[in-house]
C-alpha cells in the first residue's frame, strides 16, 4: 500500500500538468479489514453451511458419515414422499390461515388503538406483550386452553353441557388450533407496524376531509388505507417469510399429528435428518424450503424497489 498522493501546494500554472485528484471512492485493500469480521462470520456461519447443505443434498448421508454421491436421488425420493408433499401443503395451509388473519386483526387493532388515551396505551402494551413470550410458554398456555376434559375451553363448554372441539387431536381442527396460538403470539408486530404507519399520515389530510364532510368510512377507505398500503404489503411479506418457518408450535402442540396433518416442512426436515438420520434427504428438503423462502424474500425486494422508484 503506497502513501496517499500529495496534493500540489501551489496553484497549477496554465502550462503545468494538472495533478490527479484523489478518488475517495476508489477501492483500497485496507478497507477490507473493516468488513473482515462480518465476512468471516457470514462465510463460516452462513455461506459454508449453505453450500455444505447443498452438497449434502446430493449425497446419501447420515448423521455420522457423508456417504455416496446420489445426484438428484434425494430430490426424486422427496417428491415421491407423500409425507413431504403433505408437509408442503400443510405449510402453505398454515401460511394461508395465519398471514391474512395477522394482517387484518393487526390492522383492526391498530385502527382501534391509534389514539392518545391511557386505555389505548395499556391495551397496546397488552396486545404486544404476548410477542415477548417464548414459543414454549405460548404453546403451554394454549395446551392448557385446548386440553380435553380439564382445559379452559372444555370447562367453558362444560358450563353449557356441551363438548369442546378437540383442537389438538381433531384432523380438521389441529392446524386451526396451531394457527390460533400463532396469531395470539405474533399479533404484536403487525399491530405495531400499522400503528407506526398510521401515525405517519399527516393530520391535515384528515382535517381537509372533515371540512369536506367525509364520514368515517370514506376517510378510512380514501385516506387511511391508501396511505398505509405499503406497510400492509410489508406486513404480509414479513409474515409469509416468518410463518413459512413454522416449527416450535407444531412440535410442541401436536408433534405434527394427527397423521402428519400439522407437520410443516421444517418439522419434516427435523424428523428426516435427526430422527431418521437421513441427513441427505433432510438437506434436500431444506433446499426446497430455502427456494420457497427465497421467492418470498425476492417478492419483498421487488415491492421495496418499486416503492423506492415511485417516491
Amino acid at each position: 500500500m503506497g502513501d496517499r498522493p500529495v496534493m500540489p501546494r501551489t496553484a497549477p500554472s496554465a502550462t503545468s500538468v494538472r495533478a490527479a485528484s484523489v478518488d475517495i471512492y476508489a477501492p483500497q485493500w485496507r478497507n477490507f479489514i473493516f468488513v473482515a469480521p462480518f465476512l468471516f462470520f457470514f462465510t463460516t456461519l452462513l455461506l459454508v453451511p449453505l453450500l455444505w447443505g447443498m452438497w449434502l443434498s446430493f449425497h446419501k448421508a447420515d448423521t455420522f458419515s457423508s456417504g455416496n454421491f446420489v445426484g438428484l436421488g434425494n430430490y426424486i425420493r422427496l417428491f415421491h414422499d407423500k409425507e413431504f408433499l403433505q408437509s408442503v401443503w400443510n405449510t402453505f395451509y398454515f401460511v394461508l390461515l395465519t398471514v391474512p388473519t395477522l394482517a387484518l386483526i393487526g390492522l383492526f387493532l391498530a385502527l382501534c388503538l391509534n389514539r392518545r388515551t391511557r386505555t389505548a396505551a395499556v391495551l397496546r402494551t397488552l396486545f404486544f406483550s404476548s410477542s415477548v413470550l417464548s414459543v414454549t410458554i405460548v404453546t403451554l398456555i394454549w395446551r392448557i386452553v385446548f386440553i380435553p376434559n380439564v382445559g379452559l375451553l372444555s370447562t367453558i363448554y362444560g358450563w353449557f353441557g356441551s363438548t369442546a372441539p378437540a383442537f389438538i387431536s381433531d384432523p380438521s381442527l389441529a392446524m386451526i388450533g396451531i394457527a390460533i396460538a400463532t396469531v395470539w403470539w405474533c399479533i404484536g408486530l403487525p399491530m405495531m407496524l400499522f400503528l407506526s404507519a398510521l401515525q405517519q399520515i399527516p393530520q391535515d389530510i384528515y382535517e381537509a376531509a372533515a371540512l369536506d364532510n367525509a364520514n368515517r368510512w370514506q376517510t378510512l377507505r380514501s385516506i387511511t388505507l391508501p396511505s398505509i398500503k405499503r406497510t400492509f404489503i410489508l406486513v404480509v411479506i414479513v409474515q409469509i417469510v416468518l410463518q413459512f418457518q413454522l416449527f416450535g408450535q407444531a412440535w410442541l402442540m401436536t408433534r405434527g399429528g394427527p397423521n402428519n396433518l400439522t407437520k410443516p416442512i421444517v418439522l419434516y426436515i427435523y424428523d428426516t435428518a435427526f430422527r431418521r438420520w437421513d441427513l441427505g434427504m433432510g438437506a434436500a428438503a431444506s433446499e426446497i424450503l430455502f427456494i420457497l423462502i427465497l421467492i418470498a424474500a425476492m417478492a419483498q425486494y421487488l415491492v421495496t424497489r418499486n416503492k423506492a422508484d415511485r417516491t
Partner: peptide, 20 residues
C-alpha cells in the same frame, strides 16, 4: 431405527383407526 419405525407405524395406525 426402531423409534423412527414406531412413529411411522403409529401414524398410519392412528389414521386407520380414527377413520382418516
Amino acid at each position: 431405527r426402531q423409534f423412527a419405525i414406531q412413529d411411522i407405524v403409529g401414524e398410519e395406525m392412528s389414521a386407520a383407526i380414527t377413520g382418516q
